[in-house]
Nucleic acid binder design. Structure first.
Ligand SMILES: [Mn+2]
Ligand SMILES: [Mn+2]
Ligand SMILES: [Zn+2]
Ligand SMILES: [Zn+2]
Lengths: 138, 138
DNA sequence: CTATTACTTTAGAATCATTATAAACTATTA
DNA sequence: TAATAGTTTATAATGATTCTAAAGTAATAG
């Protein structure tokens, strides 16, 4: 199956109609090797580069990212910055976070071991373990 | 030395004039046993409760929190949520983060051990190691 | 003290990210 | 092919935060 069909299937199996806009954004986000970390603003700039024929409205980009997140195809990342950051790597993993540039870089889940996990507060359960290594220019 | 003077000294030694507003906010934030995690909106509600005589403007609360952060008396916390969260615990430590209620709870730095720390990307150095245990209702 | 200066507070406006609205459009279904 | 349900879009609305500039207060110099 080619990539176009893969994307269409991914959308359909998430009960999202494979519209032109969603296919374009999904193709950009999901047909890649390396993790992509982004804000909606950044994604909008890339998707709507001036040379691009078919523009996608900002509202649609927000809607689509939200739909992909709800479908489990994107993960929202904890950062400060009052902007939402998204991650195409939806598996549990860790990050370097550059506090000066706000850039994120993945660390494989098994490259860090977290031992002595405390119990969750009563009535709650642990859902994910994330390590953030804050970095800056050395 | 009493608490009033302690606060005044803390402000002065950070080169912040001990104004009525700063003393009130500092007294509320720093004279406590347990860590306090908050957003500016929450702090504003508490500081400006209706029964309170002297109101403090929202702009001043923003200014003051920013000044305290720059002076190192508060730490900004990584969350999603598009609001800034602050922490009166400025030492390195970890958190439970309830993704349903956005509530934070401290975990002592030594209650979790992180082993096998990877090297920082070249040209960068690790500044802090933070573990977030995402929790939800069980 | 008092005057001058520098810093701070404040209301309100401005900005930025995000969400809501509602009309036009398009994919799916009957 | 027609009906329908879902989607896109421009635009307005909202919410958090920052900016502005005028009035107020703390520190300092005389
Ligand atoms: Mn945040
Ligand atoms: Mn955020
Ligand atoms: Zn990642
Ligand atoms: Zn904390």
């Amino acid at each position: 199956m080619n990539q176009k069909n893969k994307i269409t299937n991914k959308l359909r199996s998430s009960k999202l109609r494979p519209t032109k806009q969603r296919r374009k954004i999904a193709d950009f986000l999901f047909n890649r090797e390396k993790t992509f970390h982004f804000t909606v603003e950044e994604l909008n700039k890339i998707i709507n580069k001036k040379d691009n024929l078919q523009k996608i409205s900002l509202a649609t980009i927000y809607n689509t990212i939200d739909a992909f997140k709800k479908a489990g195809h994107l993960k929202e990342i904890l950062t400060n910055n009052n902007k939402s950051y998204y991650d195409t790597n939806i598996s549990s993993h860790h990050h370097f976070f550059d506090i000066e540039t706000n850039e994120l870089e993945d660390i494989n889940y098994n490259d860090i071991k977290v031992v002595n996990l405390p119990h969750a507060p009563k009535g709650k359960k642990i859902q994910d373990v994330e390590v953030t290594l804050t970095v800056k220019k050395s």
